[in-house]
Design a protein around this nucleic acid. Structure first.
Lengths: 230, 230
DNA sequence: CGTGTCAATATTTTCCAAAATCTTTTTTAG
DNA sequence: CTAAAAAAGATTTTGGAAAATATTGACACG
């Protein structure tokens, strides 16, 4: 086997690892929002020196995942209804655009990937919402995200796709809320139907597909908002 | 005068200052794109220690302004036609959304601010394009940016506005190209007309305003693309 | 009892040198 | 002479101690 062909840069730096761990914890809601994050605690939690930690934090600040203030450290922004609406508005605008592009450029293998992702999602059991408890990311959720990514994967617009990924990350913070507080039976039927209709419309290049996607996202947003307010 | 009412956090950290200087230099095209940025040079240029510099770099990486690779430092991404189209596509989608929102929520003082910004822009002399030379940001350009910001300022969506600001930053990198390579006479007339029509449509809440804005941005994009290809 | 000042403490930020990694040059083997 | 291996040099990355700033608590004063 030729080693030259191996990925040229598996040399992950400590700061990157801390960045990823921190981001994952942030998205999972494992770090308190609103209150400042104590350097000492984080140092302890991720077992590294000051430099890698601060670099990871700075990068997350750049991504808008954390807020930094003068000499007062960083903190995770507190969730709010207005923020949910803000984020979903951006997601809808961007994903519409990306889907339109993908439908214009996608080829056979793109279509196949969508069908495969849809099938994998349908076969995974829907996660059971447990009140007041932070549960791990379920297999269904992972596949759900993969499905949505597959829809727009054919868009020749790297920045757009990266940006969407970042916005999806932001909505992940509300993950625990997403499936909760709804009648289980009705919910699952709607979700499965919505996704299937969406995938089919996309593949047959139906012009209503972007609108279906926008409506799908709006429904999710409404569910999250309803939960936050209830 | 009550000192308490002063901004609570004027305590700017060194890393923040370096971040701002670095970002400004990047947008002005003063740092070589494509090639890795040497730590030693930057340390020298901004006159600070390793930590603040690295923090500033990490933050810019988070913002997508720089690319980082393993143990091989950071570099400014090289401009390309595909990237211009990518960025403008995002800008158009987001600014359309923001303008629609602003038109729904804007009040009298918002309208007044638009008119004021438009007037200030019209009164500033258009910048003279100088071939193959990096010129400082002109007064007209500053006012032009302010005008565009004023259009969407009334949108109650802080994230959306921040994101747009970031995308405008990205297009700033192509600033030097924006007004170049066009007949001066024709150019000025079109630009002035486009802006005036846009401002008026926005204020009278004409539903075509978002489309006008999209077309205006598309024109700018086409000019930049034409320049890059010519 | 409230209020402002000052010291004590805690936390963040910065510098700097050691460690790790990458790049270039030199050496060695085929 | 070519290609792999080793060494030397340059650059990035990291840990920890010192400096700067913010926060808390004690104390004096009105």
């Amino acid at each position: 086997m030729n080693e030259i062909l191996a990925p040229p840069s598996p040399a992950r730096t400590l700061a990157e690892q801390v960045y990823e761990a921190l981001k994952a914890d942030l998205l999972a809601g494992l770090l308190p929002a609103g209150a400042p994050l104590l350097t000492r605690d984080l140092l302890d939690r991720y077992g590294c020196g000051v430099s890698p930690l601060r670099e990871a934090l700075a990068r997350l600040v750049g991504e808008g995942m954390l807020e930094a203030t003068g000499h007062r450290g960083v903190r995770a922004p507190t969730p709010s209804v207005a923020d949910v609406e803000d984020v979903y508005r951006i997601r809808i605008a961007l994903e519409r655009e990306a889907l339109t592009l993908a439908m214009a450029h996608g080829d056979d293998s793109w279509e196949a990937a969508i069908l495969a992702a849809a099938h994998r999602m349908e076969r995974a059991p829907l996660p059971e919402p447990v009140p007041d408890k932070i549960t791990a990311v379920s297999e269904w959720e992972r596949r759900h995200r993969t499905f949505h990514a597959s829809l727009i994967a054919a868009a020749p617009a790297p920045r757009l796709l990266r940006l969407i990924d970042k916005m999806v990350d932001q909505t992940e913070r509300y993950r625990a809320l997403r499936l909760a507080r709804t009648e289980q039976g009705k919910l699952t039927r709607d979700i499965v139907t919505e996704h299937r209709a969406l995938a089919e419309a996309v593949i047959r290049r139906d012009a209503i597909a972007p609108r279906l996607l926008a409506e799908h996202l709006a429904h999710t947003r409404d569910a999250v908002v309803a939960f936050l307010q209830g």
